[in-house]
Design a protein around this nucleic acid. Sequence first.
DNA 1: CGAACAATTGAACCGATTCAAGATGCGTGG
DNA 2: CCACGCATCTTGAATCGGTTCAATTGTTCG
Lengths: 242, 242
Amino acid sequence: MANQIASSRAPSFLKCSQCSLGNLCLPVGMNNQDMGELESIIDSTSPYNDDAPVYTAGQSFDKIFAVKSGMFKSVIVDSLGNDHITGFHLPGELFGLDAIHSEKYTSSAVSLGTSSLCAIEYKELEHLSHRLPSLQHQLMNLMSKEVRTSQSLNVDLTAEQKLAGFLVALSSRYKQRGYSETRFHLVMPRRDIANHLNMAPETVSRLFKRFANDGLLEINRTDLTIVNMQALKEMSGCLSVC
Amino acid sequence: MANQIASSRAPSFLKCSQCSLGNLCLPVGMNNQDMGELESIIDSTSPYNDDAPVYTAGQSFDKIFAVKSGMFKSVIVDSLGNDHITGFHLPGELFGLDAIHSEKYTSSAVSLGTSSLCAIEYKELEHLSHRLPSLQHQLMNLMSKEVRTSQSLNVDLTAEQKLAGFLVALSSRYKQRGYSETRFHLVMPRRDIANHLNMAPETVSRLFKRFANDGLLEINRTDLTIVNMQALKEMSGCLSVC
DNA sequence: CGAACAATTGAACCGATTCAAGATGCGTGG
DNA sequence: CCACGCATCTTGAATCGGTTCAATTGTTCG
């Protein structure tokens, strides 16, 4: 609830360019005119409340999304009805790209707390990228990075390594977006962290306690301060970072 | 060390088009002229022997590859020196795409047994795809699919589910390429299967035995026959297929 | 044939889960 | 403003799937 509502009164594309495009991963190496073209296909939408779905698995795919504020999570559901959180999306990050292949969203995206985002028509983006090679390059880059990230999650790690790695990765993503890398809020509940990392919530709890006892971090509810980043990195096996 | 440089006597693109492009995933929905252009940037290389590396992690990225015959595996190495097999590559499949982002190969690719492949200059492919929208679309498709596949591997499954799912996925990939879906060779040793699925080789061994006892399959060394595909699919939780 | 390696089998062990309470925080309404 | 109730988080003890270690069998190839 801490995240403020984006009052979108001003022309949406302008607003959007200010609050999100600036630190969005797409416009690397694009000139102003290209940026203008990119902005023109981006729509701002009204905020999402807690647990509000952006899209649901199975829905036909048309847009990808960029987080403006707050946080979203992507969830897939297996045949037994168990769901699995494939990722959390921070401000400035894109999601929905995994749906391109099947032309349907393969996961559901849900807001954590109150969040807001920009929508981008994928058809238009693809079309635009024909004329803007740098944009296309950037898109492929993103996809490639996504592959690498989820591959590195596949290695077999202890619960300790996974949680340490999760925190280090989160920290570096916040840093990249201009937020503090040592202090931030764990917007998602323990249950979600546990689910994402394939462990029991109890294990997350025990580990946080141990990390705190060992002087690696301080944690109070959702308020996290990383004290010894180096130790966390080493503990994680630092695959995702090195 | 074993891999020599393309002894391309015949015009290489002709060679390659016959043995691989036909069931390669790229040229979906492309006309003949486009196909010709695609072929012209593809190089054929001479065969690789057992354990011969196509590229090594850290090498600067320039080409992606398509398997002509045999099998390759992709391996990443973590900071502790443990390696992890991120995937096996069957005839007709592409690999090396995960390197686009970092401009370096992030994994090593190694031949299993004797295998051969085609090389595609990524720069040229990217360039070509500016003029061929369908090719670009296809590339994004592939990347998106790759994301989805490695994401679905991240869910927490029992050893039984993982192995069953591995076999079902392998079967469907062979089928897609025109091979038998019920009988094929497990080219890779047990150790590699175990590594890929994050389990001990002993566990793979025990499970194969149980699957055989339960009448799900027959297995003799590398020679596998799937007897009860349906049961395997159900056992796997069939995330990768459904 | 015999060495070297891969695969199998058995038994002890361990990390993480599960189950079951308890503690803590938080919104709601009296 | 406090008390209640619900949800989340924490903590402890028992259990289990899968690993590890060790020994055996099987396979390949010089």
